[in-house]
Amino acid sequence: MTAKFSFQSSANCSHTHARAGVFFTPHGVVETPRFMPVGTLANVKTLTPAQLKDTGAQMVLANTYHLHLQPGEEIVAGGGGLHKFMGWNEPMLTDSGGFQVFSLSEMRKITEEGVTFRSPHDGQMIKLTPERSIEIQNILGADVIMAFDECPPHTASRQEIEAATNRTYRWLERCITAHQRDDQALFGIVQGGMHLDLRSQAAADLRKLDLPGYAIGGVSVGEEPELIHKIVQNTAPLLPPDKPRYLMGVGTYKEMVMAIASGVDIFDCVIPTRWARHGTAMVKGERWNLKNAQFRQDFTPLDEDCPCYTCQNFTRAYISHLVRSQEILAYTLLSIHNITELIHFTQKIRKAILSDRFTTEFAHWLH
């Protein structure tokens, strides 16, 4: 790990692999475990950076694929880089675009060189290779950048998943060669689908490269939660203990608690803002549809224990009214609450690990 990046474990659970740590980056620290909001197009939907900061967010994700298509990495660079462009002076991570490209199953072609796909914006053919993905991310300027990987669907055959896992490693080697900035940490991604032996081999191969951090990819792509738990429980402890571990695309209570118990440090997911745009609040692990009649005359906060701006100033009845009226403010207030809810949840887990009460205080989610 370069001098600009380091990970320190502050405490370890005496009964699980859970740990509380600090990840140091050029734009500040991330206290782990921590949920990371998704700002795909250099914006966490409906929120200003100030509102985002108030949720307790310490690190935000943006997406290489989407920013390459709109507005283009050169425009972001012209605006001073990703942090200055979006007005967020805290740690940031960019996904490689691999997941988005591979989700375009009918619009792309995979070769050893990379992926060719048709832009959903204008139909133009675009070629994305490991080198090009890293070049774009170097230009964008996030603190953490992700290796370009192949993310096969969970329904793929073992042969297909094994081929994708091996290609992901070869692409990672090319990403390392292409990476040009020492103020950006390149994370590798463990693939392998549902096959634990492939996951174990991929983790062993990646460890030899001594990267600044490691991610577990290819989960939460349609498989059952029990399978996600099994994959993470097998894979996370195999990754270096002195480096941050990132579980990609997971942001529900049960899955985060189980992953933290396996030694995972950071998470990201679009759920809190996506559900907000559908009028849904996250309250203590439950989903509440604010369109329901029960909220129309309920003049209590969404969650009396939540410290967010929404819960401190507005009632369920008011938010229900905004949702029913399709007022944009509804989506902002619900996004503020939902993101705060997940970050506050991981903060509580961190405190429990520091006092070695993780398995006691979160027994409900662990069992």
Rank of each mutant, 00 (worst) to 15 (best):
A215F: 03
F35H: 06
T2P: 01
M92C: 02
S6Q: 13
G141L: 01
G98Y: 04
R357C: 12
C13I: 09
T165W: 11
F24T: 15
D183K: 09
C175Q: 09
I231A: 06
P307V: 02
L247Y: 01
V115Q: 03
C308W: 03
H321P: 06
A259W: 02
Q180N: 11
L209W: 13
L198F: 11
R34H: 15
F102R: 00
T48V: 05
V232P: 02
L41W: 04
F85T: 00
M1V: 12
L104T: 11
E150C: 12
I110A: 02
R199K: 12
I136P: 03
G213V: 10
A330C: 07
V221K: 05
F358M: 05
S119F: 11
P240V: 15
Q191T: 08
R167Y: 14
Q137V: 11
G285N: 07
E286V: 05
S119T: 11
N313Q: 14
G98W: 02
G80E: 03
Q124C: 10
R274L: 03
T273Y: 06
P212C: 10
R274G: 08
M248C: 03
Q8F: 05
Y246V: 06
V101K: 02
A178L: 13
I126D: 15
V44D: 01
P237A: 13
T177Y: 13
L342E: 07
G81P: 01
T111H: 00
G80P: 03
D356I: 04
G97Y: 07
A259G: 10
E224A: 13
G56C: 03
